[in-house]
């Protein structure tokens, strides 16, 4: 799953390289585990998910299901352009659904198995934007999430994971190259406008539950480098983010992440260009060491 994000980053690289052969890594390096994008409350995660959907549909020919609480209102110019530039076939590959509540989200995901015998075939990328919206997480404090909330979060996450596993099996039976079915969700970590220090799962009982099901975490951290010029508003031009992957597999056998293309351990820098475009550049191991 995270492999598709890494591919989006490479595709929107500050220094474009050979993009002719945009495809998934094959073999043991590809990472198709469920992935969760976490970061402070800000539209940047939605934009990133949207860019992922468009790239997957347009460049990889992947059918995408995009679940989000409400139609995406404000897309930056370049994202609007990327949508406008999609050919009709590409556009048809993205389906938006707008479940308003946890119940509706569960019903929408639970009924996906009904479409496997249709001519269009099942989606192979499931995206849920703003998972916190569905988990009763709005305005929660560190102690607010009770057992019920944790159980509900596990239900939503497990249904997504089980559905992806089922759709993967169906895509493979159909002999489709875009198998397995991937899942990417975004989740806000924030209390009263402050990102807590340290590992947020220690403080957020919902995040620790979600981590069970979304094995790869893609963390978006706003760059608060004191040497930087006056910080831009979150998600606005001039804003800079650090993106890093963590999760399952990092400790075992992924030591040479830089060479083998494995996404775990990779770090990226995301800069919002003056026109609102998202531009990614890889952060090398050396520059990490000197930080």
């Amino acid at each position: 799953m995270a492999d598709i994000l890494a591919l989006v980053f490479r595709h929107n690289n500050a220094q474009p390289r050979d993009l002719k052969n945009l495809s998934f890594a094959s073999g043991p390096d590809r990472n198709t585990l469920p992935c969760m994008i976490v970061g402070e409350r800000c539209g940047i995660k939605t934009s990133l998910l949207f860019l992922t959907a468009v790239t997957a549909a347009a460049e990889l020919g992947v059918r995408v299901l995009f679940l989000t609480p409400s139609p995406i209102q404000s897309l930056s110019g370049p994202l609007k352009d990327s949508l406008a530039n999609l050919d009709p076939d590409g556009l048809k590959k993205i389906k938006f659904m707008y479940p308003r509540s946890q119940e509706e989200l569960l019903q929408d995901v639970a009924s996906l198995h009904e479409c496997v015998r249709g001519p269009a075939g099942p989606p192979s990328l499931l995206i849920v934007d703003g998972l916190e919206h569905y988990l009763g997480a709005g305005g929660r404090g560190p102690t607010a999430a009770r057992g019920e909330d944790q159980s509900a979060a596990a239900h939503v996450a497990a249904l997504l994971a089980d559905t992806a596993a089922f759709l993967t099996q169906k895509l493979e039976e159909r002999g489709e190259a875009c198998a397995p079915c991937r899942v990417i969700v975004s989740f806000d970590v924030e209390w009263q406008g402050h990102t807590p220090p340290g590992d947020p799962s220690a403080q957020d009982p919902l995040l620790s539950v979600l981590d069970r099901y979304f094995s790869v975490r893609c963390t978006l951290d706003r760059d608060r480098n004191p040497a930087a010029p006056a910080p831009a508003a979150a998600g606005e031009p001039g804003d800079v983010w650090q993106i890093y992957f963590s999760g399952v597999g990092i400790a075992d056998g992924h030591t040479s992440a830089q060479e083998d293309g494995s996404v775990l351990g990779q770090q990226w820098r995301l800069a919002i260009r003056p026109n609102g475009a998202m531009e990614f550049s890889p952060v090398s191991a050396e520059s990490l060491a000197s930080m």
Partner: peptide, 21 residues
Amino acid sequence: CYASCHYCPCPAFAFSVLRRN
């Protein structure tokens, strides 16, 4: 319970697995 990943709506799963780990 789902066929491919661990989830159960029972209280023991919520308490011993999710909460107390």
